[in-house]
């Protein structure tokens, strides 16, 4: 049985939680004060994910770069791999909010979408 100390990031409360993990399965969470905390602890101990936001280069836009985000949180261990891909992409203006920049980033099945116009 493995025991992990975690700080919840689900809301600004920042509850200190303890999760017990048995064979890769979270068997108990304590210290959380709401169900979101339990869910965060379970995800964090099995397959941690993070929202990814960055910029990609734009040709012919008002600015040299346009901001983008992952449509869903990406696996934490793939963040730098995703950054590598996004740093080597150039898109052409015009760009609208919600335009799909990458359809499936690094085999995660997650889209990268534009979050501003350019």
């Amino acid at each position: 049985m493995e025991v992990r100390e975690l700080t919840c990031v689900a809301c600004p409360m920042g509850c200190q939680m303890t999760a017990s993990i048995d064979n890769g399965v979270v068997v108990s969470v304590t210290g959380n004060t709401c169900p979101r905390g339990k869910k965060y602890a379970e995800t964090e101990c099995t397959h941690p994910v993070r929202p990814l936001t960055t910029t990609v280069k734009v040709n012919g836009g008002k600015h040299p770069v346009v901001p983008v985000k992952s449509a869903a949180p990406v696996p934490k261990e793939k963040m730098f791999e995703c950054m590598d891909v996004l740093n080597n992409i150039t898109v052409d203006a015009p760009i609208k909010i919600g335009d799909v920049i990458v359809d499936d980033i690094c085999g995660t099945g997650i889209q990268i979408v534009a979050t501003n116009i350019d």
Binding site: T7, C8, V9, A10, C11, P12, G14, R50
Partner: peptide
Amino acid sequence: GLTRNIVQCLED
């Protein structure tokens, strides 16, 4: 700063 930012931006 917010605790969640300490975790996601520094500890990560």
